[in-house]
Design a protein around this nucleic acid. Structure first.
Lengths: 209, 209, 209, 209
DNA sequence: CATGAATGAGTGTTCATTCAT
DNA sequence: TATGAATGAACACTCATTCAT
């Protein structure tokens, strides 16, 4: 799918406003104004507000399966090293695509059988399966414990990063970082999360004492 | 604040629909229909849709500080035992008040200076401070490691439970539990989360090897 | 018709608010609040908002025919003297019952066949007929000119006083009387209007050069 | 400000209904129906019902100062002649823009600090000042008496015409003109008012005996 | 006699979408 | 391809009135 310049502007504006105000809270007029285009263009280009949401998803939801497949094939990294790379990838993606991930979190909550719910489900399923293979590989080689609940570990990974992002203003305040620059703060979050999650995973997966 | 039967019905209906559809997505007509009352009653009783949302919050947001204070004073429990009780409390509260917590998650995301944002912030702050004291107590007594980032640990606790709840349908599918009864599934989730989080916390906090 | 204390309070409140905000602009809740009674009482006592308006009218619209009849019989006053008394009566009534007269002006404008429109019409008709007799008396006795358009003269009398009352804030400003006390200002208006109108009538009616 | 055909239709409908029913009494749905347009168009074009009212005012409230200034400069007319032209202008304007003037009267009465109240005040002030100059010119040249209260004279002028218009149906009945055609009746009113007011002003202003 | 609760119709306004050009 | 105009449905809310007690 190729998008024109205007279409991309609309998708970007939609991503921003859906993240800030939610799907219902953001009106097509808001989005049109933010994207500096005519209101009618949204229906014209995307058919409807819902379809626009789908376009936002499709534009962002490149799955990380390919990356995981490459990781699996990489023989320069230890099994734990591969998990660490995975963690960093997740953290980076969440932080740099905060807006998109906020939308995704919200959409997950909504009990509707929207096309987007399906998209999210498939995306998560594919990713989970690849990660399972990565873990099982480590288990086969004796690097990881048996009895690892991969779904729960992923829940902790995704949940921790999500929670950090949604409550970042609270985090800032609690740690007196209110005057830290946005970019610097993102680096800070990135590092903290990375170390924290790597520790959690190491303790939970690794066989070594 | 004492509520009449009808007012309670409205609050319950609002809690449900705000959780499912979000604040903007749920119309007062939806809520009135769900509560089986006249639309005008919502304005009549609560003044506005926003005030109704606040009522939902006030009705649910009993903070857990008191429980933590009691835990701190309890000398029959080990330090780790206290943390485990805390984890179970959190898990229980989230699971049994899923709808309210979905609302809270969503509200946290929205960048508005609503009165509710303030309520959430204060609630979280109070809880965090009590938990910090609980951890520090354990550190002083040598039961817990030094260098524990309490905020990050709480982020993992809250994030993991939140993520589990938001993606429970995905979890069901991935584990072939689709035909499990709702109540039974909640017990299942509760147990899984409890064990998982206790392990994570034990590894992260405990000094014992 | 005898009214209870509460009913009188309602009528007074209604008179005030109808004058300030108009019939549609003043809600029964406003009136109930102003009268410090329960909303339901208005329907209970008067049947409807419209009927309340009628009650306001009936309470105030004592016609001045009786006074004119007495004037006609008075032989201590000259014909012009009688007219002057009439003018002063009109001016006094308008100024001291400003609120009621504002309502009356407004109601006159509305093109509805309300019962009130009928009340106003009858009231005006009765008054006009008496005044006509007063003028004709003077004409018969040679004190007044022939060819006097009584309706037009009354239009000027009523119109001038009405206009003064509706635009009194403008009048205050134009004459730098903004800090004059309300009571004092009413006296001022009364005197000014009295002299002005007596002059106009003297010039228009009187035969003496 | 240029208005489209539909916008003009809306303004005309609003003028009519505001005059008949008052601002609060006329609903936007009424106006939309009268103008044969969709309800949403009113918000779309004017922003709000209040702004529509302002548009009605701005469309009509061309002040007559320019005309007065021209009158002042005219040396073919006597001073009293100029006043007579002024009277005829006022009468004509009121009769031909009855609906607008009804709105204006009503708005004057309402004790609200609306933008319209300000518009009316400024309009009246400007007109009054020009008329004052016209009168003073006549006084300086000895054509008019000293001691003329211009504000009171204008009150009589405006009040008489207003009162005539608001009570025209009463006037018709009192003079048995009920079956006179509307246009013919307007001519009749115009002539009657013109003569009546010119007489009043001549007597009040002129020095000649 | 009095009232808090409740109602359905109506308010002004905004919505996502479609139309005519 | 692009857009200002237009639409009908829906929005949150207020209205005058009625009901149960």
């Amino acid at each position: 799918m190729e998008y024109s310049e205007k279409q991309i502007a609309i998708i970007k504006a939609a991503e921003k406003l859906f993240a800030i105000k939610g799907f219902d809270g953001a009106s097509v007029r808001d989005i049109a104004h933010e994207a500096d285009i005519n209101v009618a263009m949204i229906s014209y280009y995307f058919g409807s507000k819902e379809k626009l949401m789908e376009a936002v998803f499709e534009a962002r939801s490149s799955n990380i399966r390919l990356k995981i497949e490459n990781l699996l094939a990489d023989d320069k990294l230890s099994h734990l090293g591969k998990v660490n790379v995975l963690i960093d990838d997740y953290v980076d993606k969440f932080i740099h695509q905060q807006e998109f991930h906020k939308i995704m979190m919200r959409e997950q909550m909504i009990e509707k059988d929207t096309p987007i719910a399906g998209l999210i489900h498939d995306l998560k399923k594919r990713n989970l399966e690849s990660i399972k293979r990565l873990i099982e590989e480590g288990q086969k080689k004796g690097a990881f414990k048996k009895n690892i609940d991969v779904v729960l570990m992923m829940t902790t990974l995704v949940g921790t990063v999500s929670q950090m992002i949604t409550s970042q203003y609270f985090y800032k305040k609690m740690n007196n970082l209110e005057h830290m620059e946005e970019v610097e703060f993102q680096k800070h979050m990135r590092k903290k999360l990375s170390i924290h999650l790597k520790n959690l995973f190491k303790q939970s997966l690794s066989n070594e004492q």
